[in-house]
Design a protein around this nucleic acid. Structure first.
Lengths: 127, 127
DNA sequence: CAGTATCCCGTGTGATACTG
DNA sequence: CAGTATCACACGGGATACTG
């Protein structure tokens, strides 16, 4: 997805290439509210690894979505914020937020049902 | 992403879990216009493999986003369309479409620049 | 036409340890 | 605090061949 000839079949594809990373949605959502320090993000996303947080932030930075401000202090402080370009994503993020809010439960229910179904299928196949 | 405990850190995550697949954006975009046959989709997405098209459609179907209508004919005909639930994604897809339309070029430019940069870095590292 | 079935490889991601 | 550096591996995804 990342290292290829950058030609998209449709605009939606391009958009998803930018915000579609595993953690990017949540990160952007957090940064939408306000800038955050690295450690803040880490704390608010308990299940992300440090490595992944760094990588995803770097990609967003390379795509011009987030800005990385380094304060030369000891101990070091780094603050991430949305660039003006990044802020243009706001309508999309809000739309996803609204949708998610309304339908997350439905999705979870459905996926759990699938999980148990596949589990029982796998089980019966084992007999 | 797919086979885990379905608990999301934020609603945006849930949304991306549903529409974030590699080809789902484009597929949904096509189905937004009108229902399509399998072969139509295949034709309109020249670079997708048959296997991937099937898999992504199945996932969308399992998530209740698309409906699969089988016409018992010979030769077989299968038509995919958005369910009512799938249509609730419309605002998101349109937002992504708009954004992509406006900024795809910018993204491509930036990514190409990165690509050449990393290429030259890789090259100089080789020496 | 609309799919399965295999095989197989790349890379995305996690775990862990180290550092300016 | 805010990162790199490695290792190790599952899984997403491509290529190809077969089928009702």
């Amino acid at each position: 997805m990342r290292n290829e000839v950058y030609q998209y079949g449709c605009p939606v594809e391009a958009t998803l290439d930018v915000i579609g990373g595993k953690w990017k949605g949540v990160i952007l959502y957090k940064l939408l509210e306000q800038p955050r320090r690295f450690s803040e993000l880490k704390r608010e996303l308990p299940t992300i690894t440090q490595r992944m947080l760094t990588l995803q932030l770097r990609e967003l930075e390379e795509d011009g979505i987030v800005h990385r401000e380094i304060y030369k202090e000891i101990p070091p402080r780094v603050e991430y914020s949305l660039t003006d370009f990044g802020k243009t994503l706001k309508p999309i993020l809000l739309a996803m937020l609204t949708w998610g809010d309304q339908y997350t439960n439905q999705i979870i229910t459905r996926k759990s049902a699938q999980a148990t179904t596949s589990a029982s299928i796998a089980e019966s196949a084992r007999r």
